[in-house]
Write a protein that binds this DNA or RNA. Structure first.
Length: 456
DNA sequence: TGAAATGTTGGGGCG
DNA sequence: ACGCCCCAACATTTC
């Protein structure tokens, strides 16, 4: 008998961990442990997505003759307790590169036969290295090396049936408020992938930055919990590439594959440099004199900064648990370079609110914006929220859908409403400074302040 | 996967 | 006709 310990691989299709466990013995017990340490962290939306994903996985397992066993507690105790209970020869689990998971698994591996199987990414971080064996810290050479590595082009199908599971205690999935816009099932993940590759990907290169369009794949939560395997997504993307002769479609697919590689890049960074969770990757930026400004942080979190694009994005996040990638860059740049608040505050807030919150990608993204990370944006690259709005939400539709106070504001002022004359404000039914906040900071002077702080 | 400051060019108004 | 200035448009550099 073997255990399949499910952590962030909530899928039956293309799951090398499950496949390995099935090869190893005739009975496989699928187990999920509600980790108290992780449950305590207030990340309600992500947790709801996880619970829904587990519920869907449990159904699929039952349909195939198996059963999901759920326990609760510290996995360092629960897994070593469960293994003898079912007389398990081995516990199979997908390797997780986050520092917390590495510590946990190392400890558990000391007392039981824990077999980690690669599957969270496409290439293991140890395989994508320079000639001297050291990890890449710059994206472009990383991606070049990454692309030359061979990988199996066959997707492991979901098993049609699974071995029965012996009688064991199991908990129920806790009550939760479902996440409307991201139905958490493997079927939905695959549907989204195929729909994206059969149409929108053709416009991806042009539209992916447009906050007012649905130009992205919106697959991040599914990747985050392994409802979709990154490898199967890459294989499908290559299939689409091979089946298409149209330039725009090919360009879109290539661009999207590049985004998959960014995920791998940040997984690799966190794997090789776990210290990035504690401090800036680049030591030169570990002593920036950040502002301690709790009120500004609260205004940012609440979407009340007075900059429409920033506020729209922060409200979208609070309301849906998801944010457009361009909006993530804009809001991050605003927190770090306009408010001069430590990027780690933003990292923490995103981890708390994002459905797709992933330690590697989130840390990588924040350090990129802050200019403190690997291959990061130069510190002097500061987004202007007005220009970003004009460029990537040209009609203001994104702003209007999340900031209803501004819904009647003419296009001319939609990204800088404080410039509206008083009579125009009256006509649009908004009073800047009252029904919608005046800007928290003046962008031009904030920019100068940040350049000075970074220079120090 | 920027934006602002500064430099250059060239057309057109005007004395 | 000519020189001068203005300034938009574009290019380059600087942060």
């Amino acid at each position: 008998m073997n255990i399949w310990w499910i952590r962030r691989d909530l899928r039956l299709r293309d799951n090398p961990t499950l496949a390995t466990a099935l090869e190893a013995g005739e009975t496989v017990v699928p187990v999920f442990i509600f980790d108290d340490t992780l449950l305590e962290k207030p990340a309600e939306k992500r947790q709801a997505f996880l619970f829904a994903g587990l519920s869907s996985l449990a159904d699929e397992l039952t349909r195939r003759g198996s059963r999901l066993i759920i326990r609760r507690g510290n996995p360092r105790l629960e897994i070593p307790r469960l293994a003898p209970e079912v007389n398990a020869a081995a516990v199979f689990a997908e390797e997780d590169h986050s520092p917390y998971a590495v510590r946990r698994d190392t400890e558990i591996g000391g007392s039981i036969n824990l077999r980690l199987v690669h599957g969270v990414g496409i290439h293991h971080p140890n395989l994508v290295t320079k000639a001297d064996g050291k990890p890449y810290t710059v994206f472009t050479p990383f991606s070049k090396a990454w692309k030359t590595l061979p990988f199996s082009r066959s997707i492991i199908p979901a098993p049609a049936s699974l071995p029965a599971v012996p009688a064991l205690n199991s908990r129920e999935i806790p009550e939760y408020t479902p996440v409307n816009n991201f139905p958490a099932s493997e079927k939905e993940a695959l549907r989204r992938l195929m729909e994206f590759l059969s149409g929108p990907v053709g416009e991806y290169r042009d539209n992916r930055n447009r906050m007012d369009l649905d130009g992205t794949s919106s697959l991040s939560p599914y990747f985050r919990f392994g409802l979709l395997s990154a490898r199967s997504a890459l294989i499908e993307a290559y299939h689409a590439l091979e089946n298409s002769t149209e330039r725009s479609i090919n360009a879109g697919i290539e661009t999207w594959i590049n985004e998959l590689i960014w995920r791998e890049f940040y997984q690799s960074i966190l794997y090789h440099f776990p210290g990035v969770q504690q401090h800036a990757f680049n030591p030169a930026f570990r002593a920036i004199p950040w502002r301690n400004a709790p009120e500004d942080l609260l205004a940012w979190q609440a979407g009340m900064t007075g900059y429409p694009v920033v506020d729209a994005a922060m409200r979208q996040l609070a309301s849906t648990g998801w944010m457009h990638n361009r909006a993530r860059m804009i809001t991050a740049s605003f927190l770090v370079k306009d408010l001069l608040i430590n990027w780690q505050e933003g990292e923490r807030w995103f981890m708390r609110t994002l459905i797709d919150g992933d330690p590697a990608a989130n840390n990588g993204g924040w350090q990129w914006t802050a200019g403190t990370g690997t291959d990061a944006a130069p510190y002097f690259r500061i987004f202007n929220p007005i220009l970003q709005g004009a460029k990537f939400d040209p009609l203001g539709a994104y702003v209007r859908s999340w900031v209803p106070e501004l819904s009647a504001v003419p296009d001319k002022w939609i990204h800088a409403p404080w410039e509206m004359p008083a009579d125009e404000q009256r006509k649009a039914g908004v009073l800047i400074g009252s029904s919608y906040p005046a800007p928290t900071v003046d962008h031009a002077s904030a920019r100068v302040r940040t350049l000075a702080a970074y220079k120090k």
